[in-house]
Design a protein around this nucleic acid. Sequence first.
RNA 1: GAUUUGGUAGCUCAGCUGGUAGAGCAUAACACUUUUAAUGUUGGGGUCCUGGGUUCGAAUCCCAGCCAGAUCACCA
Length: 573
Amino acid sequence: MSIGLFEQEILRREAMAELRKLGIDPYPPEAFEVNVNAQDIKDNYERDKTSYKNISFAGRIMSRRIMGSASFAELQDSTGRIQAYINRDEICPGEDKTLYNTVFKKLLDIGDFIGVKGYVFTTKTGEISIHVSEMTILSKSLKPLPIVKRDDEGHVYDGFTDPEMRYRQRYVDLTVNPEFKHIFMNRSKVINTMRNYFDSQGWMEVETPILQPVHGGAAARPFETHHNTLDMPLFLRIANELYLKRLIVAGFDGVYEFGKMFRNEGMDRTHNPEFTAMEIYVAYKDYIWMMAMVEECLEKVALAVHGSSKVKVADQEIEFAGPYEKLSMYDSIKKYTGIDVSAMDESALRQTCKDLKIEIDPTMGRGKLIDEIFSKKVEEHLIQPTYITDYPIEMTPLAKKHRSKEGLVERFELFVMGKEIANAYTELNDPIDQRERLEDQLLLAGRGDEEAMAMDEDFLRALEYGMPPTSGLGIGIDRLVMLMTNQSTIQEVLFFPQMRPEKKAKLPSLEDFIAIGVPAEWVPVIQKMGFNTVEELKAANPNKVFNDLGGMRKKMKLEITMPQKEVVMEWFS
RNA sequence: GAUUUGGUAGCUCAGCUGGUAGAGCAUAACACUUUUAAUGUUGGGGUCCUGGGUUCGAAUCCCAGCCAGAUCACCA
């Protein structure tokens, strides 16, 4: 493996070997005690200089400026960067200057982790720096990091910007572009704020199955897998709603879960196959109560992340303090199209879609047609937080029928910046009604609707034992984080967004070469010489190959044993 | 899935109407005791994404494929 690399990586491996020869372990096992971080020094040193006279700091070397027997290096820890001043005669007080001349100047590289002890001071040019008196190598970096340079105004000169590499190698991205860490720190803050709020209300965090025999609770195509011992198919959950409701049946007054959901559908900048949802169910409440709860919750989140209920997103300023605007689904369509769809039957809706130039297909029922009109004509207008309420019953098999409006259910969705952020119901707890509604879904499935909800007999049995009136809410955490961190793609708020596998260099199998007697460590050399298959190698002149192997060994400074000539000749026999 | 843009050194990118590859940073060597995008001098470093085709000759033109981004469609 080590030979597909080139000079910089070979040099670093040599430096690592040199360190070992000098008796320095490039990967020491001992803990290195740290008593300060970069942010702390920068924030507090000027005020309190006496506290920084004996510090111990650890981080990565991110740049070096060597000037003879004095040097500057930028060290980066989890909180930021701080400059270190290293003077030869200070870290090497005796005759032996090896630690500076050889170890620091020759054997250390950008990316290495080191620990330093010393004191904080301000340089002539006014930079708060660490004056190093002792230096310890903590971990050697064998691959060169991309170098990102910034000037005083913060201009970036050689940015590490390729999104493919940033997502595939997030460890490199966050090392050289540490500003992106704030997105993930804020993501954590969003989740913790919600969790603290729920806990303070006395609701309980729970975990429910990810592997489910029936994929219920939402409309989406699932990932399917198989359990060997039970010899049965299982689905990765597309939702956890039905399990959380079982817990309300079981007698908990409030339960919530943050968890990954999995949907086997398209990927784009707002969809990843696995994503995080938060669902919460509270007994003895309805969807009107839930609206107020959401307003309180999101305001707390905005305050935690930004210190303000107002959040800048793209070119808008979003106000997360409630109350939010409320608009029924029918009214919203009327508002933005001028059309009253409330009394239309399926064929009238089809005509309306045609008039509005909205594509439809024959499998769509009344609910889906209305949803199409809504998503094409209304969603984009909903910039400030807006509740869309009272959905047609056909679209929502798990919500309770509206207390006063025929044909509707008690449901709301919260839209911000034209995107759905939350979805909530007064939950359907009438087991007879629930069974009928799921049976209607089966009819839709029969019409070819791949997303119609499946029947879940055990869930119906739970309802038959009795579920208290309950309101439930789901929030898409990734999209909420996108809003709170002003990001336009979901990949930027996921550490490891889903990617196609990296293409592998099309190398023939190691085994083929080993089979004809080539030592494993020489296979990469042969490949580097241009022989990609055993056949190509055998077609070459054996003497030339033998000579070239020696040449490559020297050129690439390989420390592996040269094979005997007779051995090489046998490769060709 | 459709359209479109891109894939060249470790990183960011040049490379015209086809003539066998360049810069900056990084890296190596030398100089330099307070620099900060350090500087100066001198080097090394490439399967130009892959596979076909056209051509005397392809990083460049054509076709197919792979990966990624954007837009759209689908999907909450």
